[in-house]
């Protein structure tokens, strides 16, 4: 049905030749845009309904005093559905630690939350197919679990700022919401999210079309293609200080893949940009001592580099 609609607009309404470059590109653009927005609005809404059942205040209770591994796994999975915004990272961290969530488990959550979410899943699915989307999500979750376990094993509690341990949260009961209110929340959430990310999505799709048709691939292939063993390493190192959310990364990812960068290198770059960044380090400085921040970044970076090489090997 979407295909017919795109055909109708390009060939009947605008009278473009199906064989022309422009007609083909525009048809592709309209079809992709419709498909991705349809996917985005339905899946984001669905996830938002689930999300309404897991506000961070509840997540922290679920994870409190959980054991290693099980706790890390739950934290990484809850990270997918729990809303996360870097401006809330500090109160979130304090709240978790104060509620007795082990440090390693808290990190599993902090790693998975910004990196793995339904937007990344849908966009990768829409642009590169479900295999790539699932591989990204799966390895993202595993990376969050493993990094959290390693940080937990290192016993770095003393590198959390001292005042964090002294905070005692008040009762702070959340008033439960009705199912109806959850649906309103889901609707508002979806509307707000689409309003925020639609330019990235459109640019991402457009860039994909343009790069696909018009830009030579020699340059990127020469320096960051499959044959360069350092490509993943360099991409991850460049990505560490930078920050963007998953939606903002999509146009970049599209362009790089279109220009011939290996998929594993691109996904590793996307992970390192979304998961760790210089601004995040500055924010975390409020609750963590530098040693723990370095350790956290180091472990995640090494994990992402391994994942990148693994991707390039299997894809």
């Amino acid at each position: 049905m979407l295909k017919e609609f795109a055909d109708y607009i390009t060939y009947a309404l605008l009278k473009l030749e199906p064989t022309s470059h422009l007609g083909d590109a525009l048809n592709f653009f309209i079809y992709d845009t419709l498909k991705i927005f349809l996917l985005l609005s339905t899946i984001v809404y669905g996830v938002a309904v689930i999300r309404a059942y897991f506000p961070p205040e509840k997540t922290k209770r679920i994870l409190s005093h959980k054991r290693e591994f099980i706790g890390n796994t739950m934290a990484a999975l809850l990270g997918i559905v729990t809303p996360f915004c870097s401006c809330s990272a500090v109160p979130l961290f304090i709240g978790f630690v104060e509620a007795g969530v082990p440090l390693g488990v808290t990190f599993s959550f902090l790693i998975s939350s910004p990196m793995v979410n339904e937007i990344a899943l849908i966009m990768l699915w829409g642009l590169f197919g479900w295999k790539i989307a699932l591989i990204y999500t799966g390895t993202g979750v595993v990376l969050a679990i493993v990094s959290g376990i390693v940080i937990g094993k290192l016993k770095m509690e003393k590198y959390v700022q001292d005042y964090v341990w002294e905070i005692k949260a008040g009762a702070g009961d959340i008033v439960p919401t009705s199912f109806r209110e959850k649906l309103v929340y889901a609707r508002d959430y979806t509307a707000e999210l689409l309003k925020r990310i639609w330019p990235y999505v459109i640019i991402g799709i457009a860039v994909g079309g343009i790069v696909h048709g018009y830009i030579p691939t020699d340059f990127v292939v020469k320096y960051a293609g499959r044959d360069n063993p350092f490509a993943v390493l360099v991409a991850v190192l460049i990505g560490i200080p930078l920050y963007s959310n998953a939606a903002g990364m999509i146009p970049v990812v599209q362009a790089l893949v279109g220009k011939g960068m290996a998929m594993g290198t691109v996904l590793a770059f996307m992970m390192s940009v979304t998961a760790i960044s210089f601004p995040e380090a500055v924010i975390l400085k409020n609750v963590l001592k530098m040693r723990l921040i370095y350790t956290f970044f180091g472990i995640v970076a090494v994990g992402i580099i391994i994942v990148g090489y693994l991707f390039n090997f299997i894809l």
Partner: peptide, 13 residues
């Protein structure tokens, strides 16, 4: 104050 916010049990602002 971030500490104060956390103390009130608020995790996302």
């Amino acid at each position: 104050d971030i500490g104060q916010i956390a103390m009130h049990g608020i995790l996302s602002t």
